[in-house]
Each structure stands twice: as structure tokens, then as C-alpha cells.
Simulated assay, not measured.
Amino acid sequence: MNVATTAISGLRAIADRFDHVLLDQWGTLHEGKAIFPAARECVTRLREAGKRVLVLSNSGKRASSNQERLATLGLSPEAYDGILSSGEVTWSGLHARAHEPFAGLGRACFLITRGGDRSIVDGLDLTIVTDVQEADFILLGGLDDAAAEPERWREWLSTAAARRLPMLCANPDLVMFGAKGLIPAPGALAAFYQRLGGTATFVGKPHAPMFAAALERLGNPDPRRVLVIGDSLDHDIAGGRAAAMLTLLVRSGAHRETLADADELPAIRVAAGSEAGMPHWTMKHLTW
């Protein structure tokens, strides 16, 4: 169903429309250096207004790692109601092995993460291998800036594709903020693997399991009273719309080059690709 997209200057204008917020992290709360002051105030005001705020992130790291990082950037755990990362959902799936795509994976894992982080495999019955020839599957949790360009992985991933190794991508984001601006994110590397003939399964926004896990964490409220706030049409808005939730696009994040100063709906519609991908509301920065 199509929606009428409205530009607003602050969340106070629509506060009566929702009870819960699923709040994106990168590009919405911060860009890796410090929590945006207006965003910090907004989270405070949301809680004062009785809203539950759950940070929903496509980070391939565990929830605790993300919580610690937010604290160092200026947002304490007491300021919001919890955090759910795609890395946490992936870890839980690999731990339980109760359903696909987790149940069918082997135990020898070729691990790709950012900064050598291994929290996504801590406590799991896995053997981490450094040669794709010895792996049963690839677990893609994150990428260092210097290794973000997919072409750097062509030789290894071509070998993996020839062996029909499944890839589990715990961060579907296509772009991320690097030291010099936007660079390819893990989702782009997984898409590159698919183009090489490999099979990739994604955990995180916009995929349904992420939003189902978020609703469960919130106590299974009516999704029509849940507002998804994020800077990605492809992940935050598409996932929220598919889950029958309300959606708000922050234009100064992933789409900043085309939408940061554009209030005209045609520009957003072009970026969204269709009326079905349009957000309910849009604002330049997260603010109350």
C-alpha cells in the first residue's frame, strides 16, 4: 500500500502516532565519532514521552559490543531500552541451529570481521579456518575500511564460489561511513559474491527475521504503533514497510548526496524506486 510522505522538522509533530521506536545507529545517531547532540536530546525526549526506544543495527558485532560503543560515543545504556544487532541475531541462530539458514551450515567457518572482532563466534561450536579450501561456510560480519573494496576479495571468493560455499552475511548494508566518506559495506561484498556465482543469505535489515526479533523484544506490540527511524531506504524503510510499521527517513545519512537538502518528494521517490518504498515521514536530521 502506498503512503503519503510528509517532511517534518521534529518527532514531536508525530509523537501521538507511535508507542515504540526502532532506531538505526550509523548515520542516524552518529557517524563513528560522537552521538549527534540533537539525536541524544531526541532519545531523551522520546523516553520522557513514554516511548520505548530499541536501537536496531545492521552491525555484525554482538549487541553488547554495540552498547559499549554507543556508551563511548556519548549514549549510555540507561538512555534507551535495549539494542538488537544483526550480529546478535546471527549469533543466536548459529547457537540454536534450529532453522535455516543456520541449521544446514557446517562447523568450519571462514570468518570476515571488522577490526578482528570475534564476538560473533564466541561460545559457538565452530572451527575458524583461514583458508576457504578448508571451510564449510563463510561468515561475513564486518569489513575493515582498507578491505572494503569487493575486488580485493575476487580471488578468494571465486575459489569459494567454485566450491559452492554458502555465505552468511550478518550486515546487509551496502555502504558504510569510512574515514574518507561512504565506502562499500559487507552487503556489497555479499552481492559481489553472488555475482561470482556464490550463494549468500542475509541477516539484518530489511529482512523479516530482524524485525520479528525486534517485535518480540518489545513484547509483540501492534506493528502499526512502531516507528522505524533510519537513513537507508533500502534497509530501514523497506524493512519497516514490509513489517507493516511506520517509517521515517533521515536524509543526512546514506542518501546525503541526493537527499540532504531535498524536501521535494520526487527526489525521494527516485531514490526509493517505487511508491511502495516511500517512507511515511522524512527529516534532515534526527531531532525532537
Rank of each mutant, 00 (worst) to 15 (best):
G204D: 01
V53D: 02
D236Y: 04
R47N: 10
L248C: 15
G32H: 09
D16F: 00
A271G: 03
E216P: 00
I229Q: 06
L286H: 08
L46I: 13
L54W: 04
H280R: 06
P206L: 03
G187K: 00
A208E: 15
R224E: 15
I128R: 11
L286A: 06
A147K: 14
A208M: 11
I8P: 00
T127A: 12
A160I: 09
G50Q: 05
A212N: 14
N2L: 10
G187C: 09
L233C: 08
R40P: 01
A214N: 10
I138C: 07
L218F: 07
W288A: 15
K51P: 09
R164P: 00
C42Y: 03
W281Q: 12
R40S: 14
I229L: 08
D125N: 14
S86P: 07
I183G: 10
V89F: 00
V203N: 01
L215H: 12
V175C: 04
I237K: 01
W153C: 08
P223N: 11
L73F: 04
E149H: 15
G60V: 03
V175R: 12
A200V: 08
I35S: 03
E31G: 14
S119G: 15
T127M: 07
I83C: 11
S59C: 07
A179N: 13
L249V: 11
A214T: 07
R269Y: 07
P206A: 11
A103P: 01
V3F: 03
L56T: 07
N66Q: 14
G142T: 08
D122M: 09
D144L: 06
E88V: 05
W153V: 10
A188H: 02
I183M: 05
E88A: 14
G240P: 05
N2T: 15
G219I: 10
A242I: 04
A185R: 00
S57Y: 01
D222M: 08
